[in-house]
Design a binder for these strands. Structure first.
Lengths: 200, 200
DNA sequence: TGTACATCAGTGAACGCGCGTTCACTGATGTAC
DNA sequence: TGTACATCAGTGAACGCGCGTTCACTGATGTAC
């Protein structure tokens, strides 16, 4: 059956995904190696067979989560017309249900954690640029500056929506951000269920 | 000399400020009670004479940091003309030097940490609304929605600037955010040294 | 004014616990002859 | 084709350490008479 190196890679991937879930939910410092391994269905001792340290795992998790986002945005930005692509990205990113869950963008759940760790920060640079490139491609005028602002607005809105003590205020942040990023005149609609589930 | 209850209050304040510095720099989970007390010039045992638990300290630190910001914004928003007030708030908030330091806005350094702790989240709600009120007062048209967007853009830009691996990219986020939040035509200037140092 | 006692802020040793990491091991799978 | 050995993914006990919290204590300050 499964070639040995392939099995190893699969287990490694399972650990990476378990850590991705737990780190986003509790913060990197809020989750131990044993909890990650348990979530992956393993015992904690085997961790160091796959990763050199918890820091190395943190860097790789941040990188892989953001690269997945960048890849999805890139694909969407090249498909169909630009207005539809932008709306698809923004609508999914700011979907209130997703924002309230642990599946929202790692920039918003792990941003400060990543910023404090130089290895993680470096690991994430390429994907960050990739996300900006995709946004630039969709935005009217294709100006880099507009992409920088759009990403800032989206990230900030999600951070603030997660922090708000009141769901109405949370939705207000998300709605305002969508209105600001999407070209005027396009109504923003809450349900993102038609959009594919695995965008990031 | 110092009345007894006053001395107690002063020590308490010293702990609060020490924690404010360390929590913003290393995250709440990245700093122990003993480190906070040492930073305040005390031994760790006395901590529980002033606070019920580390969680209680975290909530109070978040609250006091944000309330100071809200108070400053409120004062600025009522002083002089609105355009100047807005520019003063935005320019200081997005000052690259301050963003690179640990003194930047707690929403950007502790946002996800606070969002995960319901006591901290509740403690912070009032100040968040206060910041929005102050922004609304300065913004052309005084529309709440514009304030929601402006705060999102500013918070996101600082999160992303701190996360960026390259200083040029960091400044690009901050510049783009300033251009977007300030009414068109007003050039943004990096040095915030003329602005008072203790704004937040 | 001076002594005796009470209060109170802060000390520092100690607690149980969970962390990140190491390591000797097991048992399943792959390879050699 | 069958046996003997090597490899390798994962186990689970153990390590030293630092965490959050407790507590008996000290020594300075304030109050009573």
């Amino acid at each position: 059956m499964a070639e040995p190196t392939q099995r190893r890679a699969e287990t490694r991937q399972r650990i990476l995904e378990a850590a991705g879930r737990l780190f986003r939910e509790h913060g990197i410092d809020g989750v131990g190696v044993d909890a990650v391994m348990k979530e992956a269905g393993l015992t904690h001792g085997g961790f160091y067979f796959h990763f050199g340290s918890k820091e190395a795992l943190a860097a790789e998790v941040s990188q892989s989560l953001l690269e997945r986002a960048a890849k999805t945005w890139d694909e969407i930005s090249r498909s169909g017309d630009r207005h539809a692509a932008l709306e698809r990205i923004v609508r999914y990113y700011l979907d209130p249900e997703r924002v309230a869950s642990a599946h929202c963008c790692p920039l918003t759940t792990l941003g400060p954690d990543v910023a404090r760790r130089s290895t993680s920060r470096k690991a994430v640079g390429g994907a960050l640029r990739g996300m900006l490139d995709a946004l630039t491609r969709c935005l009217p005028g294709r100006k880099r500056q507009r992409a920088l602002t759009a990403l800032s607005t989206m990230v900030g809105a999600v951070v603030l929506a997660r922090l708000a003590d009141d769901p109405a205020l949370a939705e207000a942040f998300l709605d305002a951000a969508a209105d600001s990023v999407l070209p005027a005149g396009r109504a923003f609609n809450h349900t993102a269920s038609e959009v594919e589930q695995e965008q990031v």
